[in-house]
């Protein structure tokens, strides 16, 4: 019963997110609307944490494997992209590292300057 209820809440919010994506003319996907709806519902106590926690954590726990089928889809588009694969690969890898380092370092710097906490909250 607990899991059915949790699944129902999560999938209903997912549906509402996709509905908003269909209704509003903004380039925001349903998953992001759903993310915001979930956050607001939790924050304003419309939904309590224990009403979504177990199923939510299960989905997050297995999230990595969800990217595999889309990645395998590469074999379908391979013919289109193989010609430029070296440049694309190079740019993607190098800029990803740059963005990661810059974002991390800038955040570190501002956190230190503004005396932000380094502690893990419980």
């Amino acid at each position: 019963m607990k899991y059915i209820g949790q699944l129902a809440i999560i999938l209903t919010i997912t549906f509402l997110g996709e509905a908003l994506n269909n209704i509003l003319p903004l380039p925001v996907p349903g998953s992001i609307y759903g993310f915001l709806i979930m956050l607001l519902c939790l924050q304003f106590k419309i939904i309590k944490l224990n009403m979504v926690k177990e199923v939510g954590n299960f989905l997050l726990d297995i999230m990595s494997v969800m990217f595999v089928p889309a990645a395998v889809g590469l074999i379908v588009i391979w013919a289109d992209v193989s010609q430029n694969i070296v440049e694309i690969f190079l740019i993607c890898v190098v800029t990803t590292v740059i963005v990661m380092v810059v974002t991390g370092k800038v955040t570190d710097l501002v956190l230190r300057k503004s005396g932000g906490s380094n502690e893990r909250s419980s």
Binding site: I10, L11, I13, T14, G17, E18, G30, S31, I32, G34, F35, L36, I37, M38, L39, L42, Q43, L49, V52, K53, V55, G56, N57, L59, L60, I62, M63, M66, F67
Partner: peptide, 13 residues
């Protein structure tokens, strides 16, 4: 993936 992305709000909350 879509419901999992929605659930990313849980750790953030």
């Amino acid at each position: 993936l879509t419901p999992a992305t929605v659930c990313l709000a849980i750790p953030l909350y």
